[in-house]
Design a protein around this nucleic acid. Structure first.
Length: 901
DNA sequence: GAGTTTGAAACT
DNA sequence: CAGTTTCAAACTC
């Protein structure tokens, strides 16, 4: 501990900042320890040191960490300036109290990283590529500085120090405290790792002196293996990252030593470890990685998507490998450099990026993901991904967290939630960072100003922080009740996760936030995307009555709900509830409307040519309208802009998008054929042909990740027969359309899905390597994520964990019905029950169950296999239901899987 | 903005 | 499985 701190301090002092530190004995000691301190290394070291300092409860999980990371980055600058002072725990605490805002910023920032981490983790689990990505990410963080030049890093550090000097007194310390606390809580073990890394950091410091060397290494790694061979690249990346990070951290963190940094470092390690494999860390890291992996899987979806989009957008060069790769290692050389810089000297660069992101998000809150990506690109790198987490804030995220750590997820969730509150602080931090880091400083300021100016700004910030719209949800400024809730939460175990400072910050933020924003959805574009702006009064937003909850998204500030528990803070509750609901109806969270391939015959059929705009889509269960004649939004079909189908039990249907009679006629014949192809008649049994058809098509879609995300049509064309309903597919498209998630980033949102997506893209990319799986980006939605997960599974990668988060993937699967099959591969009945809320549709899963089961090993027979794979994946993720088993159990239990079995 | 209508979700 | 209740969105005024 001491040594690291000392190193940090020394580094900080050496570089520029923290003259006081130099004077301090610590400084001397540190200087002795590490003559050369690179900013890069500092981070990690500091983090570690921080972790070491307070060994609080390991409650927190990645989310906080992520936030912290970013914050730590920001803080680093500050910390650097603060230097030795930071070490004083009491000081840090005080600071924290003083400046809760920083935490917010941190959180906001963290999300991106979290996303990255998640991605990395997921990747690791799934594939080496993931690790590579993570490494890349890390690299991205650091590389920028490296590429820019050591000078650049140093400059950044200096700037940070300078800025930090200003900031340190204010937010820096506070942030540190929170971060450190969280880090400690979340990663007690990490502290050790951090300590180890700190040693590396020292080495890294040397690297600082030789930034060129580092940059070269990074580039080499990236070029050589990172992209191509994730596995190989992972280790290298890890090492490199560790070195770089260590060096940077030394410089950066030495001064700061903030706990937050330690957290960040931990995260970085995690990333590195996950992706690359923890160099210094031991089994602990592995365990963490696993957990994180699960978590990340959840968040992954969003993160991955986000990353993918970002990477793809940001880095044409990086694109070469794959989107997934890019996400991980955006890294074309330049990208790598960026990444490295970000990782190594994340604060500077990352902060800048984050700032940029925030700005964009704030200004263009809802601007497309592409914008986000751009901003990220412009800003820097993956770190920007932070916003994604917000999206991740979705239940899916929570799920992932729950699975992995629960705490981590919660932390992320909280962070997301906090982000809202923290927005300002986060912004400030960002601004600070930006100052230190780059030109971006002005940007952050702008953001902060925006935020300050408007509460909306806070919201926007939240959104931005979340990057995903969902994030906004999580962030949603709770009403007064919410504030109270938050407070309560703090008191609650979840609160334990969060540092007191964070809680306070949250509270403050919440207070700041307008409690009720609105009722109707979509006041903000982001809302439309992710947040549904529910207005629940009695359901606590823990029932399907709540649109947000049903969509797998955390309620946002914009929501006018009361006694809302659909918040990151209550991840556990949300997850539990979700599981319960899913147990009752596996498809409960599946998209209600599945798009059909427009091209597909079904679509054609559906439409009379009139309104079938989405002709291809249909409602999973079908509506049950009695009085609205399916001409009002009361009708889910109409609301989804899809024609009624056989599954509908509506009376007097006049759905302008297609009446069920028409649809049924047309569809039935066509579907039958496809259904036969795909399914076993027996399986189909209960399910209507249409249903089955719809389900299968989706599966197919899943097969090709790309198709999943975007190629509905292609899929349809492929599925052709099936197309009508490939629920999955539809779900995806629908989700994008219907759900708020549409934005790629939102993938985060879809938190639930996002993680999956992340996984998926990675997997797909890595394995399939398709390279781009922007789809995932496109699929930012949670649901998409699920498809992604499916894809992953298909790829053979592990999907399960992600799914466990279940919500997204699980839902998707459900939608398809295939999931049920998959889940219950053994228990189609379950699927049926679950799927058939209306009683009409659900059975489909049965038919495939056999195939799926058999195919599960494979991959695929088209979609089915994928589905099966995907199904299992879900269970693992969800803490409650153990991956496969859990899902199966859930499904079977509620639905009496016994029927089949 | 308040009240009513509607249909899904939840419950029995 | 069916019926009822609860709930929140959609709608109307």
């Amino acid at each position: 501990m001491d040594s690291p701190e000392g190193n940090r301090i020394a580094a900080a002092s050496t570089p520029t900042s923290s003259p006081p530190v130099q004077e301090s004995p610590f400084f001397n000691y540190l200087s002795n320890l590490s003559p050369i301190k690179s900013v890069k290394g500092e981070r990690f070291t500091q983090r570690f040191s921080e972790a070491n300092f307070p060994p609080p409860p390991p409650v927190f999980a990645s989310p906080h960490i992520d936030l912290q990371r970013e914050t730590s980055f920001l803080k680093r600058d500050e910390i650097v300036a603060v230097g030795s002072d930071v070490y004083g725990h009491g000081d840090t605490e005080l600071n924290v109290e003083l400046i809760p805002c920083s935490e917010k910023e941190v959180q906001s920032c963290s999300p991106s990283r979290c996303v990255d981490e998640y991605l990395a983790d997921l990747v690791e689990e799934e594939d080496c590529t993931n690790s590579a990505d993570s490494s890349l990410k890390i690299a991205n963080d650091a590389p920028q500085a490296l590429q820019s030049g050591f000078t650049g890093q140093k400059e950044i550090i200096k700037t940070r120090n300078d800025a930090g000097g200003d900031k340190n007194t204010e937010s820096g310390p506070c942030v540190r405290l929170t971060l450190s606390e969280q880090a400690e809580e979340d990663h007690p073990g990490n502290s050790l790792e951090l300590a180890e890394t700190a040693g590396n950091q020292r080495d890294a410091e040397r690297l600082d002196e030789f930034p060129d060397v580092i940059s070269r290494k990074v580039n080499d790694i990236v070029e050589s293996d990172m992209y191509l061979d994730p596995a190989c690249g992972e280790q290298h990346c890890e090492q490199i990252v560790a070195q770089i990070a260590g060096g940077q951290q030394d410089e950066w963190d030495c001064a700061s030593k903030s706990f937050s940094e330690s957290l960040q470092i931990v995260e970085a390690y995690e990333h590195c470890d996950e992706s690359l494999g923890p160099v210094p860390k031991g089994s602990v890291e592995d365990a963490k990685q696993h957990q994180r992996g699960t978590r990340r899987h959840l968040q992954f979806e969003a993160a991955v998507d986000f990353k993918i989009t970002t990477n793809g957008n940001s880095h044409s060069s990086c694109n070469s490998t794959n989107n997934t790769v890019n996400s991980r290692s955006p890294a074309s050389l330049t990208n790598l450099g960026r990444l490295v810089s970000s990782d190594i000297g994340p604060r500077g660069i990352s902060s800048s990026q984050n700032l940029v992101i925030y700005k964009q998000t704030v200004t263009a809150q809802y601007e497309t993901d592409a914008e986000m990506v751009r901003s990220i690109q412009s800003g820097g790198n993956s770190t920007i991904s932070a916003p994604i987490p917000s999206g991740i804030g979705l239940h899916l995220n929570s799920i992932g967290n729950a699975v992995s750590m629960g705490s981590d997820v919660v932390a992320s969730m909280e962070s997301a939630g906090n982000a809202g509150t923290q927005e300002k602080s986060g912004i400030h931090n960002l601004a600070k960072d930006s100052k230190s880091g780059s030109n971006l400083a002005s940007i952050p300021r702008e953001i902060s100003t925006h935020v300050d100016d408007d509460r909306l700004g806070s919201e926007a910030v939240v959104v931005a922080s979340s990057a995903t719209f969902q994030s906004t949800n999580s962030m949603k400024p709770p009403s007064a009740s919410l504030h109270s809730k938050l407070i309560e939460q703090r008191a609650t175990p979840c609160a334990g996760r969060m540092s007191a400072s964070e809680n306070a910050d949250r509270i403050m933020l919440l207070n700041q936030m307008s409690p009720k924003k609105k009722r109707r959805r979509a006041t903000h574009p982001s809302e439309s995307e992710g947040c549904k702006h529910c207005n629940c009064k009695r359901s606590k937003c823990l029932k399907l009555y709540c649109e947000c909850f049903a969509a797998g998204v955390y309620c946002a500030d914009s929501c006018a709900c009361e006694n809302c528990f659909n918040k990151p803070e209550y991840e556990d509750t949300v997850l539990d509830t979700r599981q319960q609901i899913e147990s009752r109806n596996p498809l409960a969270f599946a998209p209600k409307v599945v798009k059909r391939c427009t091209d597909s015959p079904a679509n054609i059929i559906m439409e009379d040519g009139n309104r079938t705009t989405p002709s291809s889509a249909r409602h999973k269960r079908g509506c049950n309208c009695k009085k609205s004649m399916c001409l009002k939004k009361y009708c889910e079909c109409y609301q989804a802009k899809v024609g009624c189908s056989e599954g509908c039990r509506c009376e007097g249907c006049k759905n302008s998008f297609g009446t069920k009679t028409e649809i049924t006629y047309r569809r039935a014949p066509r579907w039958e054929e496809p259904s036969h192809d795909i399914m076993n008649p027996g399986d189909v049994g209960t399910a209507s042909i249409d249903e089955l058809k719809s389900q299968f098509p989706l599966r197919r879609h899943f097969l090709s990740p790309e198709s999943v995300s975007f190629d509905q049509e292609s899929d349809c064309s492929k599925a052709g027969r099936v197309d009508q309903f490939s629920p999955i597919w539809e779900g995806i498209t629908d989700i994008s359309d219907l759900t708020p998630l549409p934005h790629p980033h939102s993938g985060a949102v879809a938190s639930s899905a996002s993680p999956n997506l992340g996984d998926f893209p990675e997997v797909a990319q890595a394995k399939l390597h398709q390279g781009n799986s922007h789809q995932s980006s496109a699929g930012s939605l949670r649901w998409q994520s699920s498809p992604i997960s499916l894809v992953r599974q298909l790829c053979g990668s592990t999907a399960p964990r992600v799914l466990s988060s279940d919500s997204s993937l699980y839902d998707i699967v459900k939608d398809d019905d295939t999931p049920e099959m998959l889940k219950g591969t053994s228990t189609p009945t379950k699927a049926v029950k679950a799927s058939s809320p209306n009683q009409k549709r659900v059975s489909p899963p049965h038919f495939q169950s056999q195939e799926l089961r058999s195919s599960s090993s494979l991959g695929l027979r088209s979609g089915r296999k994928f589905i099966l794979q995907a199904v299992p994946s879900f269970p693992p993720l969800t803490p409650y239901s153990n991956s496969k088993d859990g899902i199966n159990q859930i499904r079977s239990d509620p639905k009496g899987s016994s029927s089949d079995q």
